[in-house]
Design a protein around this nucleic acid. Structure first.
Lengths: 213, 213
DNA sequence: TGAATTTTGTACCGAAGTGTATGAAATTAC
DNA sequence: GTAATTTCATACACTTCGGTACAAAATTCA
């Protein structure tokens, strides 16, 4: 739902649209809706909840984002996109693998335990997994995201093997799965009420095993 | 909701109750309700859904199990109990650790991919994780279950260290977390639409890393 | 200034949700 | 056979849900 810039004389802000101006910012509304889905889940969130959270009224939500399901799918895909960016940054190739992995987990933890508000874990794992059983589009979006993270990890581990940091005898795909599994278990436990410090320790232990000689 | 046997003259079947007999079997109804929650999630399941699944009508559900939330908590706790039993059996100490772990994952996979019907993953991870954010009782029940499985794994790994099967230099708690993480990622991926064969392979790879010399 | 356009805000609709009241039905106890 | 007890089954009350119709408001364009 990002409005296209169009060939506008005004590169600044939103090109003047013709009718009554919007009372909301689409990007901000998407964030607020995401936060609500994150807390309450997809089925546990009503359109009124979304209207309250975004400050929009229901007809505006329909006009801007379509129905509740489309709004959620939009939120889920945006979440994955942000996740890919964070992964790329954290897994940069100019530092040791162990550091790169820990940066992934540190970043994840700071998302799963927000500075204000209760810990909610991972948006995808905390909300999409439940819906995946009955909604094939949510299911495929979820699986695609999970596999993308697997691939990020695997590529980074292969690079560490090339540079001699990790033995080439080890199974890169297997280690990547373990790196993903560590992220998944942290996501689940954060939402289940585990302490952040415990999960930090868990991450360190997992990295130690994955990067072991 | 297991009715107590009471001091009855008839040890067989249900001791004759006084009024009109029940048209349902509580244990079977709980199973059927669990199956419905499993597919649709807690918020996605209505009392009418539960009534349809169990063949009970709504007043009977309230009389027997309380409201929807109590019914769900009952289902969740029963699921964990069954899980503990399965873990104890699979992790028996008379076989190599690698075999014991694989038996855990094989058992899990046969639950996550039922012989008939679509794969739904783990009941707790697939339904309780979402609700955990806003329901403290579901949250603590979930965390307790997760930690119990951690403990099963850790005790089994320590035994393998005592018997010399696994080096004592390795961190048993860390390996237990990886074993749990493997279970969690399998649970998530199963519901996300991954192929069973792929998850079987993932399990083998994880066991290889965990049990590596 | 006035027409065209787009969004807002209220109100409404039918369906589905949770929970309960009440009387009929089926069984045991006397 | 009759009373006591327990469950069943229908129906009801009230709320919430997703979705939409429609008129007022706010802006641009000519």
């Amino acid at each position: 739902m990002v409005q296209k810039a169009e060939k506008s004389a005004r590169p600044d802000a939103a090109a003047k649209r013709r009718g009554r101006p919007r009372a909301y910012k689409p990007g901000r509304a998407l964030q607020q809706a995401t936060a609500t889905f994150w807390k309450q889940g997809y089925s546990g969130t009503s359109l009124d909840d979304l209207a309250d959270a975004t400050g929009m009224n229901r007809p505006s939500i329909y006009a801007a984002f379509g129905n509740k399901r489309a709004f959620y799918l939009n939120a889920l895909m945006s979440y994955w996109e942000a996740g890919y960016t964070a992964m790329r940054e954290a897994l940069a190739y100019d530092k040791p693998l162990s550091e790169a992995l820990m940066q992934v987990y540190e970043r994840a933890l700071s998302i799963y335990f927000p500075t204000r508000g209760q810990p909610l874990g991972c948006f995808a794992i905390g909300t999409a997994v439940t819906e995946a059983a009955e909604d094939s589009e949510i299911r495929s979006t979820l699986l695609t995201g999970l596999r993308a993270l697997d691939d990020f990890f695997e590529a980074r581990i292969r690079a560490a093997q090339k540079s001699g940091e990790v033995s080439k005898k080890r199974d890169a795909a297997a280690l990547a799965y373990l790196a993903s599994a560590t992220l998944h278990t942290i996501a689940i436990r954060a939402r289940a009420g585990a302490e952040r410090a415990d999960l930090e320790k868990l991450a360190h232990q997992a990295v130690a095993v994955i990067c072991a000689a």
